[in-house]
């Protein structure tokens, strides 16, 4: 028998108390906020920076969101007990969490360029980073993906991007270059540029 999943509820305005307490000034409980550092030593591959913000339907930036990313290492392997394809880079966690800047709402991740990862049935996907966004007013965490603007051929062949019916919306999943080894990814919850969110 298949049980029913526990329902989601909004993370609310105080998610940072539980998930990044040091950012909120609760500094005596955990040594460090989980996900604050993705690199624990010299990493394989290209080191990159990813920044951005989450925008509501009135064009305002969310300052209470929490953004998490999950991605493969430079060789396309995940640092996970569930990874069956090989051993991932021991100096790269693959997981990052950002409370966003308390004033500007900007998130920032110091990470590496992910290697390509196949689908479950073996088709190659373009390099990408999984994003998960929670905030007050978001009742179930939103999952999406960031792809890279300098991987046009791989993006054209990506099976998930190919599934987007309204082709103009593909662009909502592609970051823009923001300097050397830096990318910017803005997430729009609503409006003409509404980001494609995933049920995956």
């Amino acid at each position: 028998m298949t049980l029913k999943e526990t329902p989601s509820q909004t993370a609310g305005p105080y998610v940072h108390i539980g998930c990044t307490p040091n950012v909120t000034g609760i500094t005596s409980v955990y040594r460090a906020d989980p996900g604050a550092t993705m690199k624990t030593g010299p990493v394989k591959g290209r080191e990159i920076t990813v920044t951005g913000a989450v925008h509501d339907g009135m064009g305002q930036v969310l300052r209470d969101a929490m953004v998490e990313i999950w991605q493969a290492d430079g060789d396309g392997l995940f640092r996970s007990a569930q990874e069956t394809r090989g051993d991932a880079d021991p100096n790269f966690t693959g997981w990052g969490r950002s409370a966003g800047d308390m004033d500007t709402g900007e998130f920032r991740f110091e990470t590496v360029m992910p290697g390509a990862v196949p689908t479950a049935d073996g088709r190659m996907q373009a390099p990408h980073i999984t994003f998960w966004i929670v905030a007050r007013g978001i009742n179930t965490g939103l999952q999406t993906r960031m792809y890279f603007p300098d991987e046009a051929a791989a993006n054209d062949a990506d099976p998930l991007l190919a599934r987007i019916e309204h082709r103009a919306r593909v662009a909502t999943l592609i970051a823009r270059r923001d300097g050397a080894e830096a990318y910017r990814f803005d997430i729009y919850l609503q409006g003409p540029d509404e980001t494609v969110f995933l049920d995956i």
Binding site: W70, Q71, A72, F78, E83, R85, V117, P118, T119, A120, D121, Q125, H128, T130, P159, L160, R163, I164, V196, F197, L198, D199, I200
Partner: peptide, 10 residues
């Protein structure tokens, strides 16, 4: 939401 089968990343 765009539905897609889960893979190694999920």
């Amino acid at each position: 939401l765009l539905s897609f089968p889960s893979g190694p990343g999920e």
